[in-house]
Write a protein that binds this DNA or RNA. Structure first.
Lengths: 231, 231, 231, 231
DNA sequence: CATGAATGAGACTTCATTCAT
DNA sequence: AATGAATGAAGTCTCATTCAT
C-alpha cells in the first residue's frame, strides 16, 4: 500500500501482535467472538486477513491470547499494589478496590470480563485458566484482608467469601455493563462508574464495620483516572 | 412415528412456541446466539428445522421472543409481590430481594441476563426493550423503597441510585456466573448462590442502616426454592 | 430451480450418492484430488455445493468413498467370474484377464488406478484398504492359477509373483494411460487398448508355456465390450 | 547464519537450480503438484521462499523444468547406450532394458513417470513435450530392434507396437509403484524391482522367440546398480 | 542475491432459510 | 401442520506471489 520508510518494517512487525490483540479485544467484546469476522479484526489492526494468521494460527487461539494477555497484565499490577501497603483493613480495601478498579474500569481490559462470561462455555480451557489466574488470585488477596479485618476486630464476623463477593461482584458488573447495555443506552441512564465504585466500596465496608455508621465519612470520588488506555 | 392421540396432538401444537422458547433460551445462554444453530434449537424442542420457522420467522426474532417472554413473566411477579406489602424498608427489601431473586436464580430465566449482556450490542432493539421493561421498572421500584427508608430515618442519606446498584448488581452477577464460569468449574469453587443472596442483602442493608450493626440479626438462608422450573 | 414432479424427490435422493461418486471419480481422475474443487463435483452431479456435504462430510471422505465404491464392485465381479470356470491354466488366464480387463478398461472404474497411484501417499489409509481389497485378492487369484499351471506341467517353473506382475502390470498401465497421456494426445498415437490386452496376455502366456510357440494361436481381439458404463 | 567462504558461495549459487529441481521432484512426486507448497520446495532445497522465485517464475514453470530436466538426461543416456551395440535383438533388448531400466528404477528420475501421469491433464503442454521426447524416442528405438528381430527370424511375427508395450509398460509400472503404493506398504509386500525387471524382460523375450523356451536361460539379476543417485 | 513479511484471491465448509412433499 | 432436502451466501483459513529491506 503506502511506501514504508526503511527500518520501520521491523518496528511494525514487533508491534503487530499487540495491535492485533487490541483490535481483537475491541471487536470480540463488542460483537462476541462468533459474530466477529477474522477479517474485521485484521482490518481494525490495519493489516490484511492473511497477516492475522501469520501471528495467530486460528481465531480461537487469538481469543485465548487476548484473554491471557489482558489478564496477566492487570493481575500483576493489582498484586503489586497490595504488596507494599500497610494500614487498616478498611483503608487497604478502599485503596486497592477504588484505585485499581477505577483504572481497570476505564481501560479496555475491562472488556475481558464480558469476553470470559460470554465465551467460557464454548472454550472450556479458558475456564481453568481464568479461574486460576484471576478468580483465585484476586479472591485470595481480598479474602486475606477481610479475614485480617475480622481478626483484628475491625469487621464483624461474617462469611469471608460472601463478603468478598459483595465487595467485588458489583465492580465486575459495571465493567460488564459498560461494554453491553451501557454502550447502547442513549446516555440518559448513564451509570457513573467511577462514582459508583467509591460509594459501593464505602457502603459495603460500612456494613462490615463494627463502628457506628455515622463515623464513616462520605467517600470521595477519585479524580480523573491517571492512566488512560483508550485507543 | 409413534401414534399420538388427537387430543395430545392439539396440546402439543399449542405448547410448541413455549417449548421452542425453552430450548432456545437454554442453547442461546449456553453457547451464545451466533454459535447456536437453528437446527439445534429445533432438535432440543423435539421438532424439525422447518417447524421452527413456522413459529418464528427468523433466528433473530426467536431471540427477541425469548428475551421478551422470560422478562415479562418475572417482572410482573416481582411487582405484584411488592405491591401487597407493608413494613419497614429493610423488611420490604429483604423480602423482595431474597425471595424473588432466589427464585429467579434457580430458574432458567436467570439465563436471560447472560443473553442480554451478550447480545445487546448486536441487536440494539433489545437494549431499549430491556432497559424499559426491566432495568427501569426494577430500579424504580427499589429506588422508591430506598428513598422511603431514607426519608423515614431508617437509612443513612446515601445516593439512592448507587445504593440500588450495590444491592442488585451482585445478584445479577451470580445469575451470570451460574450460566458461565459456574457451569464449567469442577464444583470445588461452587459459590452457593442462595446463601450468598441472603448474606449480601443483609450486609448492604447493614451498611445503609443508621442503627448500630450489632442490632442486625444474621440472615437466614431461604429454604428449598418453592418453585421448580426445570423443564 | 426447475419444478420437480411429485415422488421424484425420493428417487432423486437415493440416486444422489451414486451420482456424486460418478462426478467425483471423473474429476478426481482428470484433475487430481487437490486440483478439483468441491463445487465442481457438485456441479457435475447437478447439485449445489451444499448438497455435496449433505452426503459426504468432507472432500476427503468423498475420495475414500469413490475408491471403495468402484473397487468393491469390480473385484467381486472378477472373483465370481473366476470361480465357475474349469479348463487349462492358459485358458483360464486368457478368459479372466481378457474379458474382465477389457471390460474394466472401458469403464470409468479404470480411473481408480490413477486415483490410487496419485493419492495414496497423501492419504495413507487408502494404502491399506487398496492393498487388502485389490492387490492381494487379485494377486492371490492369479498366482494360484499360475502355480497350478506350473504344477500341471503347463508352464515353465518361473517365479510366480513375477509372472503375475508381467501379466497384470501392463494392463494396469494402459488403464492409467487412458486417463492421463492417452486423454491428451491428439489421436495419432492412440494405443488400442482392447487389442493390446489380448495380444499381451497371449505373448506372456507364450513365454510361460512349455509348448513350442508356433502352437499358440494368434489371439483374437474381443468384440465390442458387452457392458458400457460410460455415463 | 554460518559464515560461508566466498568460493563456496559461488558454488552454492550455481548449484541452486539443480538443488531446487531435486527438491521439487521429490515433493511433487510424493504429494502431487497441487498439494505441494512452494515454500516446502524452497525449504527442502535449503533456501527461502523468495529465492525460489528468483530462479523459476512460478510453481508451474518449476514443474515443467523438473520434467524437462530429468527426462532429457535419461533419454540421452539410453540412446547412447543403444548406439554402440551389436548382437542379436534378444541380447540388445536385454542389455538396454535391464541395465538402463534398473538404473532408472533406482534413481529419483523414476519419479518423473508418476509426475507425468498425474499432471499431464492439468498442463497439456507437458503432454506434447513428454510424448515427443520420451515416448516416441524410446518407442522408436525399441520398435526398431523388435522389427529387426522379426526380420531376422529371431522373433515371431507379432504386432511390433504391442510387443514394445508388453516389454516396457511393466517397467514403467514398477517405477510408478515405487513412488506410490510401494512407499506406503509396510515392507511385507515389497516387490523386488530389480529382480522383476530381469525376469520380466526374459519372460517376454521368451514369448517372442521362435526358439523352444527351454533353450532360454534363467535371467541373471543385475548386480548393485552402478550409479547411485540418492541425494 | 537473498529474505520473509505482507497480501488477497480462492478453497473448503457451515448454516439460515426455503419449499416441495 | 410438519418435514428435511436443497440452496448459496458467508466465514475460516491457505498459499502463490510480490517487494521492501
Amino acid at each position: 500500500m503506502q511506501t514504508t520508510d526503511p527500518a520501520q518494517r521491523r518496528r511494525r512487525k514487533e508491534a503487530r501482535p499487540q495491535e492485533l490483540l487490541e483490535a481483537a479485544l475491541a471487536l470480540f467484546v463488542q460483537k462476541g467472538f462468533a459474530a466477529t469476522r477474522a477479517e474485521e479484526v485484521a482490518a481494525l489492526a490495519g493489516v490484511s486477513k492473511g497477516t492475522l494468521y501469520l501471528y495467530y494460527p486460528s481465531k480461537e487461539e487469538l481469543l485465548k491470547a487476548v484473554i491471557a494477555h489482558y489478564l496477566s497484565d492487570r493481575i500483576a499490577e493489582g498484586a503489586a499494589q497490595a504488596a507494599g501497603f500497610n494500614g487498616s483493613a478498611t483503608d487497604l480495601l478502599q485503596s486497592i478496590l477504588i484505585d485499581w478498579w477505577t483504572q481497570l474500569y476505564d481501560s479496555p481490559a475491562a472488556g475481558v470480563f464480558k469476553l470470559v462470561i460470554t465465551e467460557v462455555r464454548n472454550f472450556p480451557e479458558i475456564a481453568g485458566f481464568y479461574h486460576r489466574e484471576v478468580v483465585e488470585r484476586a479472591h485470595d488477596l481480598l479474602g486475606r484482608i477481610v479475614r485480617q479485618g475480622i481478626d483484628q476486630g475491625e469487621f464483624r464476623p461474617v462469611d469471608v467469601d460472601h463478603a468478598v463477593h459483595s465487595l467485588v461482584l458489583p465492580l465486575v458488573m459495571i465493567c460488564l455493563h459498560r461494554h453491553s447495555l451501557g454502550a447502547c443506552t442513549p446516555a440518559d441512564w448513564h451509570l457513573d462508574g467511577r462514582a459508583f465504585i467509591a460509594q459501593h466500596v464505602h457502603l459495603v465496608l460500612a456494613g462490615l464495620s463494627v463502628r457506628p455508621p455515622q463515623a464513616l465519612a462520605t467517600p470521595p470520588v477519585p479524580p480523573i483516572p491517571p492512566r488512560s488506555t483508550a485507543p
